[in-house]
Amino acid sequence: MSDAPTDEAATPNLSFEGSTPYEDYVQASVLTHLQHPLSDEPGEMAFLVTTQVMELWFTLLVHEWTTAARALRQDDLPTAMAALHRSLPELESLNASWKPIAHLTPGQFNAYRSALGEGSGFQSAMYRRLEFLLGDKSASMLVPHRGTPGAHAELEKALTEPSLYDEVLRLLDRRGYAIPADVLNRDPSLRYEPHPDVERAWQRVYAADDQDSDLIRLGETLTDVAEYVWRWRNDHLVATRRAMGAKTGTGGSAGVAWLEKRATKNVFPELWTARSHV
């Protein structure tokens, strides 16, 4: 006699008291009712949903990199590496979020641009936390959030805490790769600036006989992160250039000129420059 379940036994439960367990967990009805376009232009919905999806990816990446920084602080490299590896496909998905709006013509963008008012991506509190974790600190970027105490407090905390890269360099120092005291004890609220002795430390890491060491694997994973961040900035630049050329950005930003400047900067800079000396 067959032990295979009958069709009736395989039928999922369709009757629930109140909302479904899926809804309770995912909160889908909340997510799918957060879209309130401000114009009659059909294309605005794609812009709005794409931006909201990006915010969710920012949130996840902040979670991963905070987990990694905390683990590095505790010398738990496996946990840090697991979080960093998880962040790579997440970064790839974040970058792919540009696709629905990457080819807007000026006319298509202008059709609903006025609905944005003074809104601009640089005002995103979660994106700012992401940048702070990468070491790109700036106290002035807290100013737009003074009217939202919760977001301001979270950003202020992130500003004054060591970045992910700060924790990486402290780990290198504990592993015997001397990092200068002025780097280890620097004010974490300031933007990270490259240091020749940090470059030399990475040079030593990469010149080791064991080319499968945990520190080389850490360096390569961080380089993957940095490459995805660079691609994100360039995709942002290209999408903006296509949609609005060199016009002033929303919110009074410099638009393309500001994005061009950002696109020239690498995060974790010594990981790139040290390769010239190995």
Rank of each mutant, 00 (worst) to 15 (best):
T51G: 15
F122R: 05
A257S: 15
E8Y: 14
V49L: 06
D75V: 05
E131N: 00
S124W: 00
V198D: 03
L190E: 14
S114R: 14
E227Y: 09
A71Q: 00
T79L: 08
S253L: 03
R200T: 13
T240Y: 05
S213W: 06
N95K: 13
Q74V: 07
V238H: 07
T6A: 02
I179Q: 07
R186C: 07
A115H: 15
L34K: 13
R170E: 07
R217Q: 15
P180N: 12
V49S: 04
G121E: 06
W232K: 07
S97P: 03
W202Q: 11
H195W: 11
P37Y: 13
Y177E: 08
L14N: 11
E161D: 09
K247W: 06
P144W: 02
L169G: 10
Y206E: 10
H36Y: 14
A10P: 06
E17P: 00
W65T: 01
V30Y: 13
S189M: 03
T223Y: 15
R128W: 00
V229P: 02
S15M: 02
R70T: 12
E260L: 03
D187Q: 01
I101A: 01
R128T: 12
T221E: 03
E270T: 09
V53H: 00
A178K: 15
G43W: 05
P42V: 14
W258M: 10
A274M: 06
A274N: 04
A96Q: 10
A243F: 03
K157D: 08
S97I: 02
E154C: 15
Y206F: 13
T50F: 03
F268M: 10
E17D: 06
S97T: 06
K247C: 08
P89G: 04
A257N: 15
F58H: 08
K261G: 15
Y192F: 13
Q52S: 02
E167C: 12
A96C: 07
L169M: 11
Q123P: 00
K99F: 11
T79G: 02
R241Y: 10
A68Y: 01
V168I: 08
Y228M: 05
Y25I: 09
L171S: 13
A111Q: 04
N110G: 11
G249D: 04
G176S: 12
M45A: 08
A254M: 08
G117H: 06
W57C: 00
A243W: 03
L77W: 13
V53R: 04
R200D: 09
T273Q: 11
L190V: 06
R129I: 09
T264S: 15
M81P: 07
L171T: 14
E167V: 04
R146L: 15
T59K: 13
E131G: 01
A28C: 03
S87A: 03
T240R: 01
R200F: 09
L88E: 08
P144K: 07
L133F: 08
S97G: 04
